[in-house]
Amino acid sequence: MKGMNARQCRRVRWRLSEVVLGDERLSVADERHAAACLSCQAEIAHYRTIDRAFTALQQEVAPAPPGLVSKVMAGLDRSPIRWFRRPVAVSVSAMSAVAVATTVAVAIRRRHAAA
């Protein structure tokens, strides 16, 4: 019985990501298991946290670089971009870029709020 429970638990846990983040449904028996199982509950909590973060990410907008519209318009008569291999090395990590840009955005917002 214990072995079967463990198997069921593994199977249910494997599917929980798509139940919480997607539109999959558990069977009644699996639902009953998940409701009573601490491991499954912990798993559900993790995916709900991820789900909340996704919802938060949906609100974010990365402003296009200045001059993009003119560049697009100037490019309308040219052939589509031919992609080439770019050097991989380079620059600040993107996460630092996020941090910098977010800090700047927050600072600007605060300035607006203070004004």
């Binding site: 909340r52 990410l57 609100q59 974010e60 990365a62 971009i81 992609w83 080439f84 291999r85 996460m95």
Partner: peptide, 26 residues
Amino acid sequence: WSMKKRTGRHRALPLEGAPPIADTTL
């Protein structure tokens, strides 16, 4: 997708400039 097929690997995931509404509504 076409670009990905032709270029090398790229780096991190910069999504900056979260508007204030994201924090306040959530």
